[in-house]
Amino acid sequence: MIKSLHQRNSELAKSNRQLEILSNGIFQNGDLPKFKDKIAETGQFPLKAKKLEILQINVGYMCNQVCEHCHVDAGPDRKEIMTRDTMRQCLEVIKNTGAHTLDLTGGAPEMNPDFRWFVEEAAKAGIKDFIVRSNLTIIRANKKYYDLPDFFKKHNVHVISSMPHWTKGKTDKQRGNGVFDKSIKALQELNAVGYGMPDSDLRLDLVYNPSGAFLPGNQASMEKDFKKALLDDFDINFHNLFTITNLPIARFLDYLIASENYEDYMYALVEAYNPAAVKNVMCTNTLSISWDGFLYDCDFNQMLDLPVNSKVKHISEYNEELLEGRTIMISQHCYGCTAGAGSSCQGSVT
């Protein structure tokens, strides 16, 4: 298992170092345009938040996996975990929000000791779409997690899970040895309680991130290939596949630099820039809350320590109206959201 950047004491564990890299070099000498200038070409700068639709809560950076591309720099060593007090504050927001989607993420959210309590309480708010991002292997990691499929079902949680490929080789390379077999087993268990079955209301979607320095292919055709392979080889069903572009931050940035792919990757992102994707980037309808209750435009900005540009900075002073219309904090990592068909936590945006 690789180690988190934090554990390695890597300079990239510091967000300001990442932001420096993203603003210097090819973006400083004019080889490539800054994101701000690029979106200004079509009159889309400054980028503004619209009405809130998705509330994404990161309940902690601890994870049983240490994936090579992880933008959270998550791992077993990360101790940033949301407390029950902060969860209580989140519940207040959840009860009163106009958002139609609640999205719990991490790390592995299930590793937060108050995860089940939080899900039970949050489910009572009756939000239309209640998502938990589960990495699958957690379901097989330890006996105490074996009943997660039933627990998710009980609370009608929408499960979204990562799967970089339908073959073992590509999956394990990105996510660690043994991950593929465990993920397959977990998917079969989710299917067994009804998740992902063709006519089932128990939603099971998969997320695909490329396992290397290249962009994701067309979402619809990848979904077709994934469905066929998983059904033929493992008798697994799921609903939708979301293709997500890897953003050049945290461990993926580290990988890009170490493999000498950084510049080519940034060129590829800029070349694939699609002005039509800008108006739908997820920060325009999403708010991200960190384990310690601070507010960000998206989970990526959370990892880069770019807080919302608003008077309201923390969940304790939450005010949805004041947050609407705020100017989004951007940097060159944002090119990852506007390449090709665009990319968000819900897949393509065009």
Binding site: H165, W166, T167, K170, G217
Partner: peptide, 10 residues
């Protein structure tokens, strides 16, 4: 080669 990787071709 890039195109193949993007399409998930092994």
């Amino acid at each position: 080669t890039q195109d193949g990787l993007q399409r998930g071709i092994t």
